[in-house]
Simulated scan of single mutants.
Amino acid sequence: MNLPKVITELINAQNNFDSIAYADCFSETAVVFDEGKTHKGRVEIERWIDHSNKNYQAVMKPLEYTENGTSSVLTAECSGTFDGSPIILQFHFDIVDGQIESLKVTG
């Protein structure tokens, strides 16, 4: 599967539970929508993923990737210490100049 560099870096950061490297994949003004909450900016995104890593220890296995201009969707199997693990999630990205501008996680 041919993934953009920033998505490969995001997956590697997630699978290594590296919240700093994960947040560095996003622009300073990026927005993340996950579990009914919005996280704005790199600092909030780092706090969100650090909390998620500590609670769920989720790792991602990419299954499918589609791209349309700056928008793309990664379908991944996510497994960790949460009820229902593993689950299939879709990660909806807007990527501009090699950085993630927005991410919406859906199930």
Rank of each mutant, 00 (worst) to 15 (best):
M1H: 02
M1Y: 04
M1G: 11
L3P: 09
L3V: 05
P4V: 08
K5S: 12
K5C: 00
V6L: 05
V6Y: 05
I7W: 02
T8Y: 01
L10I: 03
L10C: 11
I11M: 05
N12F: 03
A13C: 04
Q14E: 04
N16Y: 00
F17G: 08
F17T: 02
D18M: 06
D18H: 05
S19V: 01
S19F: 01
S19Y: 02
A21G: 07
A23P: 14
A23M: 13
D24H: 03
C25W: 01
S27D: 14
E28R: 12
T29Y: 04
A30P: 14
F33C: 06
F33W: 09
D34E: 11
E35Q: 12
E35I: 13
E35W: 10
E35C: 07
G36F: 08
K37L: 15
K37G: 10
K37Q: 15
K40G: 06
G41H: 12
G41T: 14
G41N: 13
V43S: 10
V43A: 12
E44C: 10
E44K: 14
I45M: 05
R47A: 14
I49C: 07
D50Y: 04
H51P: 08
S52V: 13
N53V: 01
N53Y: 11
N55G: 03
Y56F: 12
Q57I: 03
Q57N: 12
Q57C: 08
Q57G: 02
A58P: 09
A58Q: 11
V59T: 12
V59N: 04
K61C: 11
K61N: 15
K61T: 15
K61A: 10
K61M: 13
K61S: 15
L63H: 05
E64Q: 07
E64I: 00
Y65H: 14
Y65L: 03
T66K: 11
G69Q: 03
G69K: 12
S72Y: 09
V73P: 01
V73G: 06
L74D: 08
L74Y: 03
L74I: 08
L74R: 01
C78Y: 02
C78W: 04
C78M: 08
S79Y: 07
S79K: 13
S79H: 06
T81Y: 05
F82K: 10
P86I: 11
I87V: 14
I87N: 12
I87D: 04
L89A: 10
F91T: 02
F91P: 06
H92W: 00
H92Q: 06
F93S: 01
D94L: 10
I95V: 15
V96W: 00
Q99A: 02
Q99G: 05
E101L: 04
S102M: 02
S102T: 09
S102V: 09
L103C: 07
G107Y: 06
G107C: 11
